[in-house]
Amino acid sequence: MMKARKRGKHKSAKPKSETYIFRLFVAGNEPNSSQARGNLARLCEERIKGLYKIETVDVLQDPTAAHENKVLVTPTLILIKPQPKVTVLGNLSDTKQVIAALRLTSTR
């Protein structure tokens, strides 16, 4: 049922207007977290410019959020929207893999 509704929505709404929502969990300014921030920003700008939103959560400031999202490692990137949810761990250095995982097909 969920699927049907989603497909319907997909048809009616223009794919261009659909935004990507990311939640990126970092631990202060540790190197891996900074790298992930940079890598994600760059990829988004290249591929889905103007169509994305990144919420950054510092687990050192907000461990409760980490716990609620079952985040154990930093950096952790969760693609919240569009569904299905995807979780990518690590500094996002493997660009090809990240693009495939996050379905960042170029909007052109």
Binding site: N32, V73, T74, V88, G90, N91, A101
Partner: peptide, 14 residues
């Protein structure tokens, strides 16, 4: 999905 280095800082913070 694993992509690059990470640490267990979130676990430790919790």
């Amino acid at each position: 999905i694993l992509s690059g280095e990470f640490s267990i800082n979130a676990l430790l913070a919790i």
